[in-house]
């Protein structure tokens, strides 16, 4: 029996780190909560290097440029926490975690779900729309 299509959207983010200084708060993650609000619910898949957005880190999002400390850079982990709190399901594929290092799975933000490699494509048909951002 075919899987029932829901009104949910799936958003895939594969390209990470696209310009911290010039983007600041206006990075691609900042769109997700709004898409979740406008759709029938959004699931977010972080693939490739973007899977690192779902890992805890000691990195402080600040940069010294000349005499200025620019402390308004994107903070992907904080944004992913906000996204989770808004009710978005956040998914990462297991092989992407493995690529990010031996301890990556232990540093996953609470609430992020791990799916098997290639598992996302198998779920596409259950979504009303699939977006690559």
């Amino acid at each position: 029996m075919p899987e029932t299509t829901t009104a949910r959207w799936l958003v895939m983010i594969e390209r990470a780190y696209r310009g911290a200084v010039e983007r600041q708060f206006a990075d691609v993650l900042s769109l997700i909560t709004e898409l979740h609000r406008q759709s029938g619910g959004t699931d977010l898949a972080l693939r490739g290097l973007a899977a690192s957005y779902a890992l805890t880190t000691d990195y402080e999002p600040a940069l010294r440029i000349g005499g200025r400390t620019l402390d308004t850079l994107p903070d992907p982990r904080a944004t992913v926490r906000d996204i989770l709190a808004a009710g978005v399901t956040v998914l990462v594929e297991e092989p992407d975690l493995t690529t990010l290092g031996r301890t990556a799975a232990d540093r996953l933000l609470p609430g992020v779900r791990v799916v098997e490699g290639g598992g996302l494509a198998a779920r596409w048909s259950s979504y009303e729309q699939v977006w690559f951002l």
Partner: peptide, 27 residues
């Protein structure tokens, strides 16, 4: 400055132009 951030309305975000200009005027 960049446009306002709806998620943090009162925070100011310098534009790239301003960041570069300040770097230039400092040196």
């Amino acid at each position: 400055t960049k446009p306002r951030n709806y998620g943090d309305w009162d925070r100011e975000y310098p534009s790239a132009t301003r960041i570069v200009r300040e770097l230039l005027t400092d040196h």
